[in-house]
């Protein structure tokens, strides 16, 4: 396309997007970052406080716990979902009966909200109602499965529910990847008599690398935003043992009315995401673009 004069109608069409970017994204980010450098409590005030809120934030045990939890959920949930999703996709790819039906069952949790997911798992994991109670009812009086009320294990309940919610998505991505693999490769492997697991491990997994990367990116974004699920599943408890950063920010913003600390936490979260994201975004969208030109 050659350079044309500016068409105002084009900019009129882009006005909503421009307004949203300028005010709702950039403006609010500046505001949030700005407040984090003041000693605002219930209301934003303009008293500059330097890095005090950040110093306090990283001395707050609850924040450190929530960051640690984010890492635990991130690593475990992503690893388990990737493994489970991949294995399911491979299994579904073996010309099995009722593939469509099984696919539907595996993916449906992803259509559910985190609220629903959290509630139902909370009931199942509740020791006085769910699995523990049922197994005891079968006669195993000493059976214990009370992860959700134990401080050390509550966060693994979050992992469990999150895997249940997300594994189907990984399966869908992986299955699409598998279906894209050249049929000749399979034939060749059979002729060469390569053992199936070797073939999958040494040939299929490397081919599916892009699928693994996109699944990982999608899942990790979910981890940073993790809020609703924890809220209804454990409420961040017992104590604050299963708190996560997004919930920490919400609590301090609204219930605790300490917006200085809350915005410092939000800013920390923002920087973390930006650091992880910018190289990937650049590589995905803009380098690719340049190549095209």
């Amino acid at each position: 396309m050659k350079q044309r004069p500016i068409r105002w109608s084009v900019y009129a069409g882009l006005t909503p997007a421009i307004l949203i970017v300028v005010f709702a994204y950039i403006g609010t980010i500046i505001w949030t970052v700005g407040i984090s450098f003041t000693d605002s409590r219930m209301l934003p005030v303009a008293r500059f406080a330097g890095f005090n809120q950040y110093v306090r934030l990283f001395a707050t045990e609850r924040w450190l716990t929530s960051v640690q939890n984010m890492v635990i959920v991130g690593v475990l949930m992503i690893a388990i979902s990737l493994a489970l999703g991949f294995l399911l996709a491979v299994a579904l790819d073996q010309r099995i009966r009722a593939e469509g039906f099984l696919r539907t069952i595996i993916l449906y949790p992803y259509a559910m909200s985190f609220i629903v997911t959290g509630l139902v798992w909370q009931w199942i994991l509740n020791p006085t109602l769910g699995i523990e109670q049922t197994v005891r009812g079968w006669g195993f009086e000493n059976f214990r499965f009370d992860w959700i009320i134990q401080k050390e294990t509550a966060i693994y309940c979050v992992v469990l529910a999150a895997v249940w919610h997300a594994a189907g998505l990984v399966m869908a991505i992986m299955l699409a990847g598998l279906r894209g693999i050249d049929q000749d490769l399979w034939k060749a492997s059979r002729i060469d008599g390569i053992k199936p697991w070797r073939f999958y491990w040494h040939i299929v997994v490397p081919i599916l690398r892009p699928s693994f990367i996109s699944a990982t990116v999608l899942l990790s974004l979910g981890v940073v935003k993790l809020y609703d699920l924890v809220l209804v599943l454990t409420g961040g408890g017992p104590g604050f043992s299963s708190d996560v950063p997004a919930k920490f920010v919400m609590d301090y913003l609204f219930q605790r009315q300490n917006i200085g600390l809350a915005t410092a936490a939000a800013t920390t979260l923002l920087i973390t995401v930006l650091c992880a994201l910018t190289p990937w975004l650049y590589a995905e969208y803009f380098r690719a673009e340049k190549r095209k030109d």
């Binding site: 949203i20 970017v21 709702a24 994204y25 403006g27 609010t28 980010i29 505001w31 949030t32 407040i35 974004l221 940073v224 935003k225 950063p245 997004a246 920010v249 919400m250 913003l253 917006i259 809350a262 915005t263 936490a265 939000a266 800013t267 979260l269 923002l270 995401v273 930006l274 994201l277 975004l281 969208y285």
Partner: peptide, 14 residues
């Protein structure tokens, strides 16, 4: 794009 990826907590208070 960044807006899609960032946690809502950054935007909510303003």
């Amino acid at each position: 794009l960044l807006g899609a990826f960032l946690p809502y907590q950054v935007f909510i208070y303003p």
